[in-house]
Design a protein around this nucleic acid. Structure first.
Length: 686
DNA sequence: CTAATTCCTGCCATATAGA
DNA sequence: TCTATATGGCAGGAATTAG
């Protein structure tokens, strides 16, 4: 066999170019497969990239859907981090943002950013260089390389080697403008200098330098995700293990026994799995320790909040005293009793650490480890026949540890599903979205049907097929909710915010507030709404139309609330009583879907008619007998909300749809019309 | 503190796609 | 045609915001 010369060629710029290309794609929205919502901003990105650079995302994406919402970070900070992830650079970050940036970097498990604090502190203290920089602290643990959180120890790539060599000198550098750089030296640039264009392509390798021990010293999200089997059962957890910021992942966790491995329990890490729940107490005046919560997030809880607030921090006044009969939400009896619990916000600590009697507290807003905000957990169980009165106390569901889930004994395997029984509802949290949870199997026990997945990706689809054989059309992946079955009733739980819904349609509708898959822009202004109804109501404010009319005095009002308030205050009557005290007139100014109203007024006032979807040219008669000729001549444009099926699909096409309808045609001031401020001018298209 | 506004969610009617 | 699902309007309570 003839010997052949082996050639090895390394494209030293490949990674940089690749990163650049990825960043370009991100900027163009190409192939972005995840939306990260931070505050009011949405960031499109690539899961692979994020997961490679962030231990947080790495874990999160193992369970999360296409949209994740972070509430423990500020949007501008996240923007910087995202820019870093896609460029390997942090450029000209304001110094006042630095601290927060570092914190956020830690939270997200982005080693480079997390490590920035080290040199910064050195700078601040003027303690001289060297010290405990990343190189010293960071164990020679190349496998913690940020881009590949899960492995690669065995890959001492040249770059890695080089990086190690450079560590001492190439720590992040704070320039005079507090820009941070970890510039690569391929072109021998001074650390502080930044030729962004060129460096961008070269820096990324270096980032592995700073990976680290943040990950090493703290339990990574991934570690947390997989519960250490040997962990103390949640019930016995004396205290909440401090939540490692970076670990505040979980929208949900896949809990597939088959996949569960104990390998990660190496984590002698002080922390155990951090449950997704971290609620905080709204009434609790204690601000987050780090104080970096935005006002809006203060009620949302942050990892830090979790860290610093314990369930026992619950303001006594806001919680039922302990001596109060504990209504263990895990107990079916709790529901049966129908106890109305005081509402409050609670810090739920993971691992089911929240004391069992924390159930006596009904959190109103629960944050789940940074993934979202409010949580309605009013849990009162009236009669099951009154769905609205029975809300699952999600806190129960989410506060649990997965340890016991894993430990739960598989009771039986049926049709590709493994059924396990949990001892407490708090353990349910670990379930993947495909799991169905059956409560009330016994006191404080729950049967959980877990699909046995061969392939994590297909698992849920398989689950659906398995579990819903009767459904002809089942979403292959309903990764937007869990299903919790209590007393035979199914509750749909949003995986993002853990709200529970009796109606799946309600959940679907609600979920758009997370995903913004559909957007409903106002025709009159720049506002955009996640729900069509919100937009409609908002637009009515633009038109000024007053559809709600008090039957007692004839006054008209713009919405139900105003009308009801009027009836209550002026007439001292209850608008929600049996007798109809108002009338809802058909909408004249907006082409919204209207139903064939049932007579909803006690006096027989008409609520007329009969404009259906697609029937927009059906004349509408108002209560005064006036015929509103709706869209007589205009052929149905797929023009409106009325055609909701279409508009819903492409809600952003409002501009196209209504382009010809100038707003001023919709209404104009009218002083002649008593009582109302506008004369409604039905556009021709109506 | 009160009123106004916005949000939320069960329920319902309607439209549509697929079997 | 039937069924499941999507969509969105409405009611009315709750939460939030504004004055």
């Amino acid at each position: 066999m003839e010997t052949k010369k082996l050639i090895t060629a390394t494209d030293t710029q490949y990674s940089g170019i690749l990163l650049n290309a990825l960043n370009d794609q991100r900027m163009q929205g190409l192939y972005c497969d995840v939306t990260v919502i931070v505050e009011d901003r949405k960031f499109r990105a690539h899961r692979n990239i994020l997961s490679a650079c962030s231990t947080y995302f790495h874990q999160l994406f193992s369970v999360a859907g296409q949209v994740v919402e972070l509430n423990f970070i500020k949007a501008d900070i996240f923007a910087e981090i995202l820019n870093y992830i896609y460029s390997s650079r942090i450029v000209r970050v304001r110094c006042d943002m630095l601290e927060e940036l570092i914190k956020s970097g830690k939270l997200l498990g982005v080693p480079f950013i997390a490590e920035l604090g080290i040199p910064l502190s050195q700078v601040k203290s003027i303690s001289g260089a060297g010290g405990k920089d990343g190189s010293t602290d960071a164990p020679p643990n190349p496998d913690q390389k940020a881009p590949e959180p899960q492995k690669s120890t065995d890959n001492p790539s040249p770059s890695t080697t080089k990086i190690k060599a450079d560590v001492e000198t190439e720590m992040p550098v704070i320039t005079e403008s507090f820009s941070l750089s970890s510039d690569d030296q391929k072109d021998k640039k001074a650390p502080g200098s930044k030729d962004q264009a060129s460096e961008k392509e070269e820096d990324d390798d270096d980032d592995v330098i700073f990976c680290s021990e943040i990950v090493a010293s703290k339990q990574t999200p991934a570690e947390r995700k997989v519960p250490a089997q040997s962990q103390t059962p949640p019930d016995n957890e004396p205290e909440v293990k401090k939540v490692t910021p970076a670990g505040q992942v979980q929208v949900s966790q896949n809990y597939l026994p088959s996949n569960q491995q104990t390998s990660k329990n190496t984590s002698s890490a002080p922390q155990k799995f951090i449950p997704p729940v971290n609620t905080n107490i709204s009434q609790n005046p204690t601000p987050p320790a780090n104080g970096f919560l935005s006002p809006t997030t203060q009620k949302q809880g942050t990892p830090n909040a979790v860290q610093n607030q314990h369930s026992q921090n619950i303001t006594p006044g806001n919680t039922l005293p302990q001596q109060k009969p504990v209504v263990n939400y895990n107990s079916p009896k709790a529901h049966q009793i129908g106890i109305v619990q005081p509402k409050t916000e609670v810090i739920f600590h993971g691992n089911g650490l929240c004391p069992p009697n924390s159930s006596v507290v009904t959190p109103k807003h629960i944050s789940f480890d940074g993934v979202q905000k409010k949580q309605v957990v009013t849990f009162t169980q009236g009669s099951p026949s009154k769905p609205g009165e029975f809300k699952i106390k999600i806190a129960d569901v989410v506060s649990g540890s997965k340890d016991s889930i894993k430990d739960a004994e598989p009771r039986r395997i049926i049709d590709g599903k493994k059924i396990i029984t949990l001892d407490t509802a708090s353990e349910i949290e670990g379930l993947s979205t495909g799991c169905k949870v059956y409560a009330n199997i016994g006191e404080d026990t729950y049967d959980i049907v877990i699909p046995i997945k061969e392939d994590p990706e297909e698992g849920e689809a398989k689950l659906d097929l398995d579990e819903f054989p009767n459904r002809k059309r089942m979403k292959l992946k309903h990764d937007d909710h869990y299903e919790l079955i209590v007393d035979g009733r199914v509750y749909y739980i949003c995986i993002v915010c853990k709200r529970s819904y009796v109606c799946l349609t309600s959940l679907r509708r609600h979920f758009n507030v997370h995903s913004w898959e559909k957007k409903y822009p106002c025709r009159y202004c720049e506002r955009v709404f996640p729900l069509a109804e919100y937009r409609t109501k908002h637009e009515i404010h633009h038109t000024g139309e007053r559809r709600y009319q008090c039957l007692t005095c004839g006054s008209s009002f713009i919405n139900y609330q105003v009308m009801a308030s009027h009836i209550r205050s002026v007439h001292s009557l209850d608008p929600s009583g049996d007798s109809k005290l108002y009338r809802l007139n058909p909408c004249k100014t907006l082409q919204i879907r209207q139903y064939a109203y049932v007579n909803n007024s006690v006096d027989g006032a008409i609520n007329v008619p009969v404009i259906m979807d697609g029937g927009i040219n059906v004349p509408v008669i108002n209560d005064g007998g006036i015929v509103y000729d709706i869209d007589q001549d205009k052929p149905q444009q797929p023009a409106s909300e009325g055609n909701h099926a279409n508009s819903a699909q492409k809600p952003v096409n409002w501009d196209d749809i209504f382009l010809q309808q100038s707003n001023q045609n919709m209404f104009k001031p009218n002083t002649s019309e008593g009582g109302t401020e506008f004369e409604f001018v039905i556009p021709e298209s109506y």
